[in-house]
Amino acid sequence: MIQRQQIVLLVLLLALTLLGFLISFSSGSSQLGFREVIAQFLNPSPGLEQQILYELRIPRSIAAFVTGALLAMSGVIMQVLLRNPLADPYILGISGGAAVAALSAISLGLGGYWISYAAFFGALFSIVIVFGLARSSHNWSATRLLLTGIVVSAGWGAVINILLTTSANNSVYSMLFWLMGDLSVSRAGFVSILILVLGLLGMMYFARALNVLSRGDLQASALGVNVPRLKLILYFTASVLTACAVSIAGTIGFVGLVIPHMLRLLGARDHRVLIPASLLLGGNFLMIADSFARTVIAPQQLPVGVVTAVIGVPVFLLILRHTGKRIRE
Protein backbone atom coordinates (compact mmCIF):
# COMPACT_ATOMS: atom_id res chain seq x y z
CA MET A 1 0.00 0.00 0.00
CA ILE A 2 1.43 3.38 -0.93
CA GLN A 3 1.88 5.55 2.11
CA ARG A 4 0.79 9.15 2.22
CA GLN A 5 4.28 10.45 2.88
CA GLN A 6 5.50 8.73 -0.26
CA ILE A 7 2.82 10.41 -2.36
CA VAL A 8 3.78 13.71 -0.76
CA LEU A 9 7.39 13.04 -1.66
CA LEU A 10 6.56 12.37 -5.30
CA VAL A 11 4.31 15.42 -5.59
CA LEU A 12 6.99 17.60 -4.00
CA LEU A 13 9.59 16.25 -6.40
CA LEU A 14 7.31 16.92 -9.34
CA ALA A 15 6.80 20.52 -8.20
CA LEU A 16 10.53 20.86 -7.61
CA THR A 17 11.14 19.61 -11.13
CA LEU A 18 8.92 22.27 -12.68
CA LEU A 19 10.67 24.91 -10.61
CA GLY A 20 14.04 23.40 -11.56
CA PHE A 21 13.21 23.69 -15.25
CA LEU A 22 12.26 27.36 -14.83
CA ILE A 23 15.45 28.12 -12.91
CA SER A 24 17.48 26.28 -15.49
CA PHE A 25 15.79 28.16 -18.36
CA SER A 26 16.61 31.45 -16.65
CA SER A 27 20.28 30.74 -15.99
CA GLY A 28 23.04 31.71 -18.33
CA SER A 29 25.52 34.33 -19.28
CA SER A 30 23.10 36.50 -21.25
CA GLN A 31 20.54 38.76 -19.60
CA LEU A 32 17.54 36.51 -19.82
CA GLY A 33 16.22 36.09 -16.32
CA PHE A 34 13.26 34.46 -14.63
CA ARG A 35 10.85 37.25 -15.50
CA GLU A 36 11.83 37.38 -19.16
CA VAL A 37 11.51 33.60 -19.48
CA ILE A 38 8.01 33.63 -17.98
CA ALA A 39 7.10 36.50 -20.26
CA GLN A 40 8.37 34.56 -23.28
CA PHE A 41 6.19 31.59 -22.34
CA LEU A 42 3.05 33.59 -21.65
CA ASN A 43 3.49 35.91 -24.52
CA PRO A 44 5.94 34.65 -27.15
CA SER A 45 7.72 37.36 -29.06
CA PRO A 46 10.26 36.50 -31.75
CA GLY A 47 13.76 37.83 -31.41
CA LEU A 48 17.11 37.10 -29.83
CA GLU A 49 15.60 36.22 -26.46
CA GLN A 50 13.32 33.65 -27.95
CA GLN A 51 16.16 32.22 -29.96
CA ILE A 52 18.40 31.90 -26.90
CA LEU A 53 15.59 30.29 -24.94
CA TYR A 54 14.47 27.76 -27.53
CA GLU A 55 17.74 27.00 -29.23
CA LEU A 56 20.19 27.11 -26.36
CA ARG A 57 18.64 27.00 -22.93
CA ILE A 58 15.71 24.60 -23.26
CA PRO A 59 17.63 21.92 -25.16
CA ARG A 60 20.46 22.15 -22.64
CA SER A 61 18.09 21.94 -19.68
CA ILE A 62 16.44 18.90 -21.18
CA ALA A 63 19.83 17.32 -21.81
CA ALA A 64 20.78 17.94 -18.18
CA PHE A 65 17.51 16.54 -16.87
CA VAL A 66 17.60 13.44 -19.05
CA THR A 67 21.24 12.71 -18.17
CA GLY A 68 20.65 13.10 -14.44
CA ALA A 69 17.51 10.98 -14.60
CA LEU A 70 19.26 8.21 -16.53
CA LEU A 71 22.19 8.12 -14.11
CA ALA A 72 20.03 8.09 -10.98
CA MET A 73 17.84 5.27 -12.27
CA SER A 74 20.85 3.27 -13.32
CA GLY A 75 22.33 3.85 -9.86
CA VAL A 76 19.24 2.42 -8.19
CA ILE A 77 19.43 -0.70 -10.31
CA MET A 78 23.16 -1.24 -9.82
CA GLN A 79 22.86 -0.91 -6.05
CA VAL A 80 20.23 -3.64 -5.93
CA LEU A 81 22.04 -5.86 -8.40
CA LEU A 82 25.41 -5.71 -6.74
CA ARG A 83 23.78 -5.65 -3.32
CA ASN A 84 26.16 -2.88 -2.51
CA PRO A 85 25.01 0.53 -1.38
CA LEU A 86 28.25 1.99 -2.72
CA ALA A 87 27.63 0.84 -6.28
CA ASP A 88 27.19 3.52 -8.91
CA PRO A 89 26.38 3.35 -12.62
CA TYR A 90 30.08 3.35 -13.53
CA ILE A 91 31.15 0.62 -11.17
CA LEU A 92 31.39 -2.06 -13.85
CA GLY A 93 33.77 -0.04 -15.98
CA ILE A 94 31.16 1.49 -18.26
CA SER A 95 32.61 4.97 -17.93
CA GLY A 96 36.14 3.85 -18.75
CA GLY A 97 35.13 2.19 -21.99
CA ALA A 98 33.01 5.18 -22.95
CA ALA A 99 35.84 7.57 -22.09
CA VAL A 100 38.45 5.75 -24.14
CA ALA A 101 36.14 5.69 -27.16
CA ALA A 102 35.08 9.32 -26.76
CA LEU A 103 38.62 10.55 -26.19
CA SER A 104 39.82 8.64 -29.23
CA ALA A 105 37.11 10.35 -31.25
CA ILE A 106 38.21 13.73 -29.89
CA SER A 107 41.86 13.07 -30.67
CA LEU A 108 40.91 12.11 -34.22
CA GLY A 109 39.34 15.53 -34.50
CA LEU A 110 35.80 14.20 -34.69
CA GLY A 111 33.14 16.27 -33.01
CA GLY A 112 29.54 16.43 -31.89
CA TYR A 113 27.56 13.31 -32.58
CA TRP A 114 30.61 11.23 -33.33
CA ILE A 115 31.79 11.64 -29.74
CA SER A 116 28.36 10.61 -28.47
CA TYR A 117 28.20 7.55 -30.68
CA ALA A 118 31.73 6.60 -29.72
CA ALA A 119 30.91 6.96 -26.01
CA PHE A 120 27.73 4.92 -26.32
CA PHE A 121 29.36 2.01 -28.08
CA GLY A 122 32.49 2.24 -25.96
CA ALA A 123 30.29 1.86 -22.88
CA LEU A 124 28.47 -1.16 -24.27
CA PHE A 125 31.76 -2.69 -25.42
CA SER A 126 33.17 -2.37 -21.92
CA ILE A 127 30.10 -4.01 -20.41
CA VAL A 128 30.36 -6.93 -22.81
CA ILE A 129 34.03 -7.37 -21.87
CA VAL A 130 33.30 -7.26 -18.14
CA PHE A 131 30.45 -9.73 -18.38
CA GLY A 132 32.43 -11.98 -20.67
CA LEU A 133 35.35 -12.10 -18.27
CA ALA A 134 33.32 -12.37 -15.07
CA ARG A 135 31.19 -15.21 -16.34
CA SER A 136 31.77 -18.61 -14.85
CA SER A 137 29.53 -21.56 -15.65
CA HIS A 138 26.55 -19.48 -16.82
CA ASN A 139 26.55 -17.49 -13.65
CA TRP A 140 27.70 -14.08 -12.53
CA SER A 141 28.42 -13.44 -8.93
CA ALA A 142 28.29 -9.88 -7.70
CA THR A 143 31.80 -10.11 -6.26
CA ARG A 144 33.29 -11.42 -9.49
CA LEU A 145 31.56 -8.72 -11.49
CA LEU A 146 32.72 -6.00 -9.11
CA LEU A 147 36.32 -7.16 -9.16
CA THR A 148 36.33 -7.58 -12.92
CA GLY A 149 34.73 -4.16 -13.31
CA ILE A 150 37.35 -2.54 -11.11
CA VAL A 151 40.23 -4.19 -12.92
CA VAL A 152 38.85 -3.38 -16.35
CA SER A 153 38.29 0.22 -15.21
CA ALA A 154 41.90 0.44 -14.14
CA GLY A 155 42.91 -0.77 -17.60
CA TRP A 156 40.76 1.86 -19.28
CA GLY A 157 42.24 4.43 -16.89
CA ALA A 158 45.70 3.66 -18.21
CA VAL A 159 44.53 4.03 -21.80
CA ILE A 160 42.87 7.35 -20.90
CA ASN A 161 46.16 8.61 -19.47
CA ILE A 162 48.01 7.55 -22.59
CA LEU A 163 45.50 9.46 -24.72
CA LEU A 164 45.75 12.52 -22.50
CA THR A 165 49.54 12.62 -22.52
CA THR A 166 49.98 11.99 -26.21
CA SER A 167 47.27 14.21 -27.66
CA ALA A 168 47.61 17.76 -28.94
CA ASN A 169 47.09 20.49 -26.37
CA ASN A 170 43.84 21.86 -27.72
CA SER A 171 42.13 18.49 -27.76
CA VAL A 172 43.35 17.72 -24.22
CA TYR A 173 41.19 20.60 -23.01
CA SER A 174 38.04 19.11 -24.57
CA MET A 175 39.06 15.69 -23.26
CA LEU A 176 39.31 16.96 -19.69
CA PHE A 177 35.91 18.61 -19.94
CA TRP A 178 34.44 15.42 -21.32
CA LEU A 179 35.99 13.38 -18.49
CA MET A 180 34.66 15.70 -15.81
CA GLY A 181 31.24 15.66 -17.37
CA ASP A 182 30.12 18.62 -19.40
CA LEU A 183 26.80 19.71 -20.79
CA SER A 184 27.85 22.80 -22.71
CA VAL A 185 27.43 21.21 -26.12
CA SER A 186 25.00 18.48 -25.11
CA ARG A 187 21.67 17.77 -26.65
CA ALA A 188 19.38 14.98 -25.55
CA GLY A 189 18.05 13.55 -28.76
CA PHE A 190 14.76 11.80 -29.25
CA VAL A 191 16.44 8.43 -28.76
CA SER A 192 17.75 9.23 -25.30
CA ILE A 193 14.34 10.50 -24.17
CA LEU A 194 12.79 7.34 -25.55
CA ILE A 195 15.35 5.23 -23.68
CA LEU A 196 14.54 7.11 -20.48
CA VAL A 197 10.79 6.56 -20.86
CA LEU A 198 11.16 2.89 -21.80
CA GLY A 199 13.60 2.40 -18.94
CA LEU A 200 11.14 3.93 -16.51
CA LEU A 201 8.23 1.79 -17.73
CA GLY A 202 10.31 -1.37 -17.68
CA MET A 203 11.67 -0.71 -14.22
CA MET A 204 8.24 0.15 -12.85
CA TYR A 205 7.03 -3.19 -14.14
CA PHE A 206 9.79 -4.95 -12.20
CA ALA A 207 9.75 -2.57 -9.23
CA ARG A 208 8.06 -4.95 -6.79
CA ALA A 209 10.37 -7.74 -7.87
CA LEU A 210 13.27 -5.37 -7.18
CA ASN A 211 11.99 -4.95 -3.63
CA VAL A 212 12.14 -8.72 -3.27
CA LEU A 213 15.50 -9.03 -5.01
CA SER A 214 17.08 -6.57 -2.58
CA ARG A 215 16.52 -9.22 0.14
CA GLY A 216 18.85 -11.61 -1.60
CA ASP A 217 18.72 -13.95 -4.58
CA LEU A 218 17.49 -16.99 -2.69
CA GLN A 219 14.73 -15.12 -0.89
CA ALA A 220 13.61 -13.63 -4.20
CA SER A 221 13.66 -17.03 -5.83
CA ALA A 222 11.65 -18.48 -2.92
CA LEU A 223 9.04 -15.78 -3.51
CA GLY A 224 8.58 -16.75 -7.14
CA VAL A 225 10.93 -14.30 -8.86
CA ASN A 226 12.82 -15.67 -11.86
CA VAL A 227 16.11 -14.35 -10.55
CA PRO A 228 18.52 -15.10 -13.43
CA ARG A 229 16.14 -13.63 -15.98
CA LEU A 230 15.43 -10.56 -13.86
CA LYS A 231 19.11 -9.90 -13.25
CA LEU A 232 19.93 -10.18 -16.92
CA ILE A 233 17.22 -7.66 -17.76
CA LEU A 234 18.42 -5.35 -15.01
CA TYR A 235 22.08 -5.46 -16.04
CA PHE A 236 21.10 -4.80 -19.60
CA THR A 237 18.82 -1.90 -18.67
CA ALA A 238 21.30 -0.27 -16.31
CA SER A 239 24.03 -0.55 -18.95
CA VAL A 240 21.94 1.02 -21.68
CA LEU A 241 20.76 3.82 -19.38
CA THR A 242 24.34 4.59 -18.32
CA ALA A 243 25.72 4.34 -21.84
CA CYS A 244 23.03 6.74 -22.97
CA ALA A 245 23.83 9.21 -20.17
CA VAL A 246 27.54 9.04 -20.87
CA SER A 247 26.96 9.64 -24.55
CA ILE A 248 25.08 12.86 -23.77
CA ALA A 249 27.35 14.48 -21.23
CA GLY A 250 30.51 12.49 -20.54
CA THR A 251 31.18 10.91 -17.19
CA ILE A 252 29.31 12.95 -14.64
CA GLY A 253 29.99 11.50 -11.23
CA PHE A 254 28.03 11.49 -8.05
CA VAL A 255 24.44 11.63 -9.37
CA GLY A 256 24.02 7.88 -9.72
CA LEU A 257 25.54 7.15 -6.32
CA VAL A 258 24.01 9.84 -4.19
CA ILE A 259 20.50 10.43 -5.49
CA PRO A 260 19.17 6.92 -4.75
CA HIS A 261 20.78 7.13 -1.32
CA MET A 262 19.26 10.50 -0.49
CA LEU A 263 15.83 9.21 -1.42
CA ARG A 264 16.24 6.02 0.59
CA LEU A 265 17.23 8.12 3.57
CA LEU A 266 14.15 10.28 2.96
CA GLY A 267 11.97 7.18 3.21
CA ALA A 268 11.59 6.04 -0.41
CA ARG A 269 12.67 2.43 -0.06
CA ASP A 270 9.92 0.85 -2.08
CA HIS A 271 11.27 0.71 -5.64
CA ARG A 272 7.86 1.62 -6.99
CA VAL A 273 8.45 5.02 -5.37
CA LEU A 274 12.24 5.07 -5.44
CA ILE A 275 12.52 4.65 -9.21
CA PRO A 276 10.29 7.55 -10.32
CA ALA A 277 11.59 9.64 -7.43
CA SER A 278 15.19 9.01 -8.53
CA LEU A 279 14.31 9.95 -12.07
CA LEU A 280 12.86 13.27 -10.91
CA LEU A 281 15.47 14.15 -8.31
CA GLY A 282 18.39 12.99 -10.44
CA GLY A 283 17.21 15.03 -13.40
CA ASN A 284 16.52 18.01 -11.22
CA PHE A 285 19.81 17.82 -9.41
CA LEU A 286 21.84 17.79 -12.59
CA MET A 287 19.77 20.59 -14.10
CA ILE A 288 20.36 22.82 -11.10
CA ALA A 289 24.03 21.86 -10.94
CA ASP A 290 24.34 22.78 -14.61
CA SER A 291 22.66 26.14 -13.94
CA PHE A 292 25.39 26.82 -11.40
CA ALA A 293 28.06 25.58 -13.77
CA ARG A 294 27.20 28.18 -16.35
CA THR A 295 26.57 31.13 -14.03
CA VAL A 296 29.08 30.92 -11.16
CA ILE A 297 32.03 32.22 -13.14
CA ALA A 298 30.10 33.45 -16.19
CA PRO A 299 30.81 33.99 -18.99
CA GLN A 300 33.19 31.08 -18.36
CA GLN A 301 31.66 27.69 -17.68
CA LEU A 302 32.62 25.01 -15.21
CA PRO A 303 32.32 21.33 -16.06
CA VAL A 304 29.05 20.23 -14.45
CA GLY A 305 30.70 17.18 -12.89
CA VAL A 306 32.67 19.50 -10.63
CA VAL A 307 29.48 21.19 -9.48
CA THR A 308 27.63 17.93 -8.80
CA ALA A 309 30.39 16.97 -6.40
CA VAL A 310 30.57 20.39 -4.75
CA ILE A 311 26.80 20.47 -4.12
CA GLY A 312 26.27 16.77 -3.62
CA VAL A 313 28.92 16.01 -1.04
CA PRO A 314 27.76 18.41 1.71
CA VAL A 315 24.05 17.78 1.05
CA PHE A 316 24.55 14.06 1.29
CA LEU A 317 26.64 14.32 4.44
CA LEU A 318 24.01 16.54 6.05
CA ILE A 319 21.20 14.12 5.29
CA LEU A 320 23.28 11.21 6.50
CA ARG A 321 24.04 12.94 9.79
CA HIS A 322 20.48 14.01 10.30
CA THR A 323 18.92 10.59 9.73
CA GLY A 324 21.67 8.93 11.72
CA LYS A 325 20.62 11.03 14.69
CA ARG A 326 16.96 10.21 14.21
CA ILE A 327 17.61 6.50 14.24
CA ARG A 328 19.74 6.71 17.38
CA GLU A 329 17.04 8.68 19.17
Binding site: R208, Q219, L223, R269
Partner: peptide, 23 residues
Protein backbone atom coordinates in the same frame (compact mmCIF):
# COMPACT_ATOMS: atom_id res chain seq x y z
CA UNK B 1 12.67 -19.92 6.28
CA UNK B 2 16.35 -19.52 5.52
CA UNK B 3 19.15 -20.22 7.95
CA UNK B 4 20.18 -16.59 7.76
CA UNK B 5 18.71 -13.45 6.28
CA UNK B 6 20.29 -10.58 4.41
CA UNK B 7 19.23 -7.02 5.11
CA UNK B 8 21.58 -4.76 3.24
CA UNK B 9 19.10 -2.21 2.01
CA UNK B 10 17.30 -0.23 4.71
CA UNK B 11 13.74 -1.34 5.38
CA UNK B 12 11.13 -1.30 8.12
CA UNK B 13 9.76 -4.38 9.82
CA UNK B 14 6.35 -4.05 8.17
CA UNK B 15 7.88 -3.50 4.71
CA UNK B 16 9.95 -6.63 5.21
CA UNK B 17 6.99 -8.78 6.23
CA UNK B 18 4.94 -7.49 3.29
CA UNK B 19 7.54 -8.98 0.93
CA UNK B 20 5.77 -12.27 1.65
CA UNK B 21 2.75 -11.08 -0.32
CA UNK B 22 4.75 -10.81 -3.55
CA UNK B 23 3.65 -14.10 -5.13
Amino acid sequence: LFQSTQDIMPSTVLETALIGRHP
